[in-house]
Deep mutational scan, measured.
Amino acid sequence: EINVTSHGEEQAKHWIELAKRMNLDVEVEIHGDKIIITIK
């Protein structure tokens, strides 16, 4: 399980695309200006 804290939408999209390509599950939480991505 990987937790990524992203401070930008572009960076977040990059991680989500990467996870989808690798067929991994992704959870995205938004806390103000921080985007927390959990890849399982």
Rank of each mutant, 00 (worst) to 15 (best):
E1S: 12
E1Y: 08
E1K: 10
I2D: 05
I2S: 08
I2T: 11
I2M: 09
I2F: 04
N3H: 13
N3W: 11
N3R: 15
N3Y: 07
N3I: 14
V4R: 06
V4M: 09
V4P: 07
V4A: 06
T5S: 08
S6Q: 07
S6C: 15
S6E: 10
S6G: 08
S6N: 09
S6Y: 03
H7S: 10
H7G: 05
H7L: 10
H7T: 08
G8S: 12
G8V: 14
G8E: 11
G8F: 15
E9N: 06
E9C: 15
E9M: 14
E9I: 14
E9Y: 14
E9A: 10
E9V: 10
E10Q: 10
E10A: 10
E10I: 08
E10H: 05
E10K: 11
Q11W: 15
Q11D: 13
Q11L: 15
Q11A: 11
A12G: 05
A12K: 12
K13W: 13
K13T: 05
K13G: 08
K13A: 07
K13Y: 11
H14D: 12
H14R: 10
H14G: 06
W15S: 06
W15R: 12
W15E: 15
W15N: 08
W15G: 13
I16Y: 09
E17H: 05
E17L: 03
E17I: 13
E17P: 08
L18A: 05
L18Y: 04
L18R: 02
L18H: 03
A19S: 03
A19G: 04
A19H: 10
A19I: 14
A19Y: 06
K20R: 04
R21Q: 11
R21E: 13
R21T: 09
R21W: 15
R21D: 13
M22E: 03
M22P: 04
M22R: 01
M22V: 07
N23A: 09
N23R: 11
N23Y: 14
N23H: 07
N23D: 08
N23F: 14
L24Q: 01
L24R: 01
L24I: 09
L24G: 01
L24K: 01
D25C: 13
D25S: 12
D25N: 06
D25H: 12
D25T: 14
D25Q: 10
V26T: 01
V26E: 00
V26H: 00
V26S: 01
E27I: 12
E27K: 11
E27H: 12
E27R: 11
E27W: 11
E27Q: 13
E27T: 14
V28W: 05
V28P: 00
V28T: 01
V28H: 01
V28I: 12
V28F: 06
V28K: 00
E29N: 04
E29V: 11
E29K: 10
E29I: 12
E29Q: 12
E29M: 12
E29T: 12
E29D: 04
E29Y: 06
I30L: 03
I30N: 02
I30R: 03
H31T: 07
H31E: 09
H31M: 09
G32K: 07
G32W: 11
G32H: 11
G32E: 10
G32N: 07
G32R: 07
D33E: 09
D33C: 15
D33F: 10
D33G: 05
D33P: 03
D33V: 04
D33I: 10
D33A: 06
K34Y: 13
K34Q: 08
K34F: 14
K34S: 08
I35W: 03
I35Y: 02
I35V: 05
I35M: 03
I36D: 02
I36N: 02
I36Y: 02
I36H: 02
I36R: 03
I36E: 02
I37E: 00
I37P: 00
I37R: 00
I37Q: 00
I37L: 02
T38R: 13
T38A: 02
T38W: 02
T38V: 07
T38I: 10
T38M: 04
T38N: 04
I39K: 01
I39N: 01
K40Q: 04
K40P: 01
K40L: 03
K40Y: 03
K40T: 09
K40V: 04
